[in-house]
Write a protein that binds this DNA or RNA. Sequence first.
DNA 1: TTAGGGTTAG
Length: 423
Amino acid sequence: MNICIASMCKSNQIVKAESILIDGIKLGLLPDVVTYNTLIDGYSRFVSIDRAYDILNRMKEAGINPNVVSYNSLMSGSVRKSSLSKSLQLFDEMTQLGISPDVWSYNKLMHCLFKLGKPDDANRVFKDIVENGEMDCCMSTYNIMINGLCKNGYVSNALMLFRNLQRNGFVPQVLTYNAMINGLCKARRLVMKCCFRCGKLEQGLDLLSEMRSKGYTFDGFAYSIVVAALVKTGRIEEAGEIAEKMMSNGLVPDLASYNTMINLLCRKERVDEALKLVNEIDRQGLCDQYTHTIIIHSLCKDGNFVDAKKHLDYMNTLGFGFNLVAFNCYLDCLGKAGLIDQALKVFDTMEVKDSFTCTILVHNLCRAKKFIFASKLLVFYIKSGFQILMATQRAVIDGLSTASYNNEARKVKSKIWKARLKH
DNA sequence: TTAGGGTTAG
């Protein structure tokens, strides 16, 4: 019965899994802790954490005590659904019930802390595991550490950990390489914001070669990371070469790889080919919000705002929710095309806005030389806690100065300082 | 019976 239920849960057939459970009970097969844990995992993966938690209560009512796996599955599900505080709460609940966390629990705890942007806390947990030697850490512990450090801006520390793996008796997995390559490829972008270029992207490309020379069998992850990073930095030809390698290696592309290829084709100004590929995967009902956003962005960059708007509406009919990234692209391209009044109208209709939206609007107001309006919005957004790019802040202040609003420029600077101190 | 990696915007 457990094997049947596990198979149903893995393929998102929860209703069937439940009916097998009921049939089993009728036949006198009583569910055990493994049966309930499998259901908890299925519900937390495909339904909701609350429903998974209901199963936990059901097992208690049936007289079966949850164990460490029950809580690990619930924690996983919570992190997956970005209910991060719920995950921490579950960890506490588990210890309060006297269930000892295992290395899986600590791994999930670290993953959750990294996602919450608390790398110091995650590192403390890691040190506890490694230094106190209370339990053996495993390769997943390192994978989580390497990925988490990269995502939180500590790429050099991650690289050090990666290079020391062998000394600690571990061999990096494909997944470890992918996380490290991703960290290195993205680092350049993060670092570019505050200082001059550093060669992290090159290091990422070297690591891809290292993987190849060590005979690792690639999946699509490393390819999409590297191709996307090269596209982003304008190195279209190199991106194309690596994409060719991916295809010639006989790798069957999944949706994320397709999206990477579609983006590459758009950047190569081979939009017709990109659209052909989109239609192909759209017919199979595979397109996701990334696919649509790439197309909308491409249409906007070509100044084809009518078709871009049509595509935004088409997404709505497909049942996608509000696409913030696509709207940000739309807004930015309108501004860059000199259509600031239209951009302002779109901005007013947007139901969700983030730091990208605000930066785009302020920057485009500067492009349109509306510096006073831009400065008022800039101060308001910074006070509201949005992260506005330094380049945009400079554009406002420099714009005010060159337009002879020197006094206003000084006031804005001082207001930004005060707002920064508050945050 | 449970993990961890990728694709879109300033």
